[in-house]
Computed example of a mutant assay.
Amino acid sequence: MRKFVATIGSIAVVAMLASCSGEEPPSNGPGDTAACKAAMKADYGKALATPGGPTASRPTACNGIDDATAQRLAGEVMSEVTPAPPTPTPTSTPTPKVLTIAQAGKVYLAAVEPRNVTSEKFAKDYDAGASAKALRADAVKGLKTERHFLEVLDRTLWPEVVAANVANLIDCQGQLVSWFSANTRITKRSQITGAPDCGTGDAQIVRARLGLPPA
């Protein structure tokens, strides 16, 4: 809409300028620039208010004004009368806050418990001699919960007391995600290698410092 209004304004001013040296000859004396500008402004305002109306012509108040001065006045009128675009209202993004110990404990448990269930099932089924097909199915579920746990660890602002241990867990979870991903593609049990040996110590420290019972 602003572009359309600006276009109308440009047409109106061009019409004024085009008629400056045409239809009405200048008078013998110097013209009144203030009166000329006021008349231009009035005609320009009408042109903006009535798109498609009669084309603006040279105001009689501009008789005696040379073309260069008329062009300058028309430019001033355009800048003064054309509505300025609205200033966008700034939006503020809330700053994420570090979780309290209690909040962090709830977030940690909600993410780690499903992960522990699928991890333990994979291990039990493997020890029980489950087929490669069954272990692939276990690995698909395990991969989902391992990824979710990694995402929660990575995006949460943890209390300083566990921040370093969580960083270690993030590194370990990356390895576990890769390990489970590989196990979703096995065709025989012998393709399964040992799981990454990491994270146990840091996980116990995190649980203790967040007031959670040992796993």
Rank of each mutant, 00 (worst) to 15 (best):
K3Y: 06
I8T: 07
G9D: 02
G9R: 01
I11V: 04
I11Y: 03
I11S: 07
V13A: 14
M16Q: 04
L17C: 10
S19N: 15
E23I: 13
P26Q: 02
P26Y: 00
S27N: 07
N28C: 10
N28P: 08
D32W: 09
T33E: 15
K37A: 06
K37F: 01
K37H: 03
A38W: 12
M40A: 11
K41D: 06
G45N: 14
G45H: 10
A47D: 12
A47V: 05
L48M: 14
T50F: 13
T50V: 15
G52N: 14
P54E: 07
P54Q: 05
T55L: 14
T55I: 11
P59T: 06
T60Q: 15
I65C: 13
D66W: 01
D66V: 04
D67Q: 13
T69C: 09
Q71L: 10
R72I: 05
R72S: 13
L73V: 11
L73P: 07
A74H: 00
E76T: 05
E76P: 04
M78L: 06
S79Q: 04
V81C: 11
A84V: 08
P86T: 01
T87R: 12
T87K: 14
P88L: 06
T89M: 10
T91M: 12
T91H: 08
P94M: 09
T95E: 12
T95A: 12
P96K: 09
P96V: 07
K97Q: 15
V98D: 04
I101K: 04
Q103P: 07
Q103E: 15
V107C: 03
Y108D: 01
L109Q: 13
L109N: 10
A111P: 10
R115Y: 14
N116V: 00
S119I: 03
S119F: 12
E120I: 06
E120H: 11
E120K: 14
E120C: 06
F122R: 00
K124R: 15
D127G: 09
D127S: 12
G129Y: 11
A132M: 03
A132D: 02
A132S: 09
K133D: 09
V140Y: 02
G142A: 05
K144I: 00
T145E: 12
H148Q: 15
L150I: 09
E151N: 14
E151L: 14
D154E: 15
D154N: 14
W158A: 05
P159E: 14
E160L: 15
A164F: 00
N165G: 07
N165I: 00
N168F: 01
L169Q: 04
I170Y: 00
D171F: 01
C172E: 03
C172T: 04
G174C: 11
Q175G: 08
S178H: 05
S178K: 12
S178L: 08
W179I: 01
A182N: 09
R185G: 04
R185W: 05
R185T: 12
Q191Y: 12
I192L: 06
I192R: 05
I192E: 02
A195C: 05
C198F: 12
C198Y: 11
D202F: 09
A203N: 15
I205M: 08
R207V: 04
R207S: 07
R209I: 03
G211Q: 07
L212C: 08
P214T: 03
